[in-house]
Amino acid sequence: MTVLRPLGFMFALLAGLSGCSSDAEKSNLLKELVSGQGEVVPDPTFLAYEQTGAPTYLVSLEAKKQAYTIFVRQTTNAKGEETWISLDKLSLGMKNGMIIATRGMGGDQLAGDPSQTLAALKAGRSGVTERFVTLLNGESQAETLAFRCEVERQRQADVDLGPYTADTDLFYETCRNGQIRFRNLFWVERGSRNLVQSRQWISETVGTLALRAVPR
């Protein structure tokens, strides 16, 4: 299993960080350097939720070959916002299949508001929507971007989810502001109107995540 989490260990070595210490964390840097990528010890919290049969996503990082991981839903708050955690200790904020936050990916989305797009997808209609994204920038400040997006139904598509094949409508959501353009893809299951598969843009640093629901 390749981890999604970016690794900065070469830098750590160059910076002379490696060494041994009474602080186990600092010593780990060296260990992880020697063993290459750092051994992924599955997060026990992840395993606990995974074993209860909580909903699961298989998630891959577009920009990095073979970088994928598994997320499981940990909790849903009073506002219907869900937190999903991965076996390599990343997390996603989700709402009805739309990513509204990421944590631990190097160029995180602190928050997002894709509610207009979600409404269009749920209603199965094309149209123009507004989407908002708050990024954590390199100066540790929150920075909110607004995008104008066009949601368009492309075609019917079958998505093989393993145990069964979902009959879906494929939608494109093409967004832009002055500097950035991206396109999200959503496969919306007919009938349930659930997002069974998607590709969602996170930030310029991270790029795009591809998500697929794993039927339990």
């Binding site: 909790t75 708050n77 997390s91 990916m105 190097g106 995180d108 990024l135």
Partner: peptide, 19 residues
Amino acid sequence: PQKPKYPSGIEEAPPTLMP
């Protein structure tokens, strides 16, 4: 200086806020 390679850091996710 305003643009480190990993703007938000690569440390693990924070603890999930539970109900």
